[in-house]
Computed example of a mutant assay.
Amino acid sequence: MKQQEPFPFTLDVVAYPIAFIMLLWLIFAIEIRFGFSLNFLGIYPQKSSGLIGVVFSPFIHSGIEHLWHNTIPLFVLSTALFYFYRPIAFKILFYGIILSGFLTWCIGRPSYHIGASGLIYVLASFIFFKGVFAKHYRLIALSLLVAFLYGSMIWNTLPLEEGISWEGHLSGLLVGLLFAMVFKKQIAKPKRYVWEEPDYNEENDAFLQHFDQNGNFVESIVEEELPESNLPEVTLPLTITYTFKENKEL
């Protein structure tokens, strides 16, 4: 007997990621339509006025290429988050934005840091490390998939290229790892069989009762009670007499 499948699919698995991405594109469209920039709402490290970007920076992008490069991984990773970690998905998103943004504010260079890439690193890091820690075959497979698709992002956590907020990427990576260690008991549990339960007693297992101590199959015959009959009881031993009658016509 197995437990119920821990990863059921519902419409909100894709509905929430699509809604979030549509919001990002809507904000960018408003900037283009009215000809102004919201970059001043990004994170500006070590300045009190720059703290506003801790909340707003993931919703602001410098251009359509910047936004497009964040759209696909954000959709893939947030969909995986809602499917495999639905009970804590909103916590990961909300606290991921706040903590990664604040850490960026603490360690970042004096410049505006904008974009959802910090949140993407939170999701990628959390999904990868949580799958490894959980030891569930599906979550481990998901971790390997994330490593295959986005493993190269690790290089963007180093100051190798101008114009990229490696501080935001590094902050997201560290926050995701932190979440993977903190959120231990709020994820779907692996399926367990009856014999994997701590209180399992093999003597009460109906299936194992068909085998002897050496593992040989023992066929048990269930005796059924016959209905009562009006026939007289027969006492053993029983004597049967045969009478042979000769056929004279032959």
Rank of each mutant, 00 (worst) to 15 (best):
L170Q: 01
L170M: 13
F126K: 01
A124V: 04
V175T: 14
A147D: 03
M153I: 13
L158Y: 04
A141W: 02
L170P: 02
L139Q: 12
P159E: 13
S143T: 14
H136A: 06
V146W: 01
I140D: 13
S165C: 07
K135Y: 15
A141D: 00
W166S: 07
S165I: 07
T157S: 12
L160A: 07
E161T: 14
S125R: 10
L142A: 09
Y137G: 05
E162K: 08
F129A: 08
L144D: 10
L174F: 15
W155M: 09
G168E: 14
S125G: 08
F126V: 05
I164L: 11
L158S: 07
L144R: 15
L144A: 15
G168P: 01
F129T: 12
H169F: 07
M153W: 15
V146H: 04
A134P: 02
I140E: 11
E167L: 02
W166K: 06
F129G: 00
V175C: 06
L173R: 02
H136M: 07
L158K: 05
E161P: 01
F133S: 04
F128T: 08
I154F: 10
A147Q: 02
F128E: 00
F129L: 12
T157D: 08
L144T: 14
L170T: 10
L149W: 05
K135A: 15
S152R: 13
S143F: 03
G131Y: 01
Y137S: 14
Y150C: 01
G151I: 02
S152W: 11
Y150S: 08
M153A: 12
L170H: 05
L139D: 12
A124K: 07
L149F: 10
S125T: 07
A141Y: 02
N156D: 12
Y150W: 13
G172D: 03
V175M: 11
N156A: 06
V175P: 05
S143P: 03
G172I: 05
E167I: 06
G151E: 08
R138Q: 10
E162M: 06
T157Q: 09
L149M: 13
S171Y: 11
A147T: 00
L142T: 12
G168C: 11
L160Q: 10
N156W: 15
L144I: 15
V175N: 09
I140A: 06
G172P: 01
L145Q: 05
G131D: 03
T157N: 14
K135F: 14
G131F: 03
F129R: 11
M153L: 15
F126S: 02
L158N: 01
S171E: 14
P159H: 08
H169L: 09
G151C: 04
V132P: 00
G172Q: 11
S165F: 00
F148S: 14
V132Q: 08
G131K: 04
P159T: 10
G131L: 03
G131I: 05
A141M: 06
F129S: 07
L139H: 09
K135V: 14
R138T: 06
H169K: 11
Y150H: 11
G172A: 08
L145C: 12
F129M: 11
E162C: 00
L160S: 06
S171V: 09
F128C: 00
L174W: 13
I140C: 06
F128N: 01
S152M: 06
G151P: 01
S143H: 13
F128Q: 02
R138Y: 10
L142R: 11
G131A: 12
F128Y: 01
G131E: 00
W166V: 04
G151R: 04
M153Q: 15
L170A: 10
S152D: 10
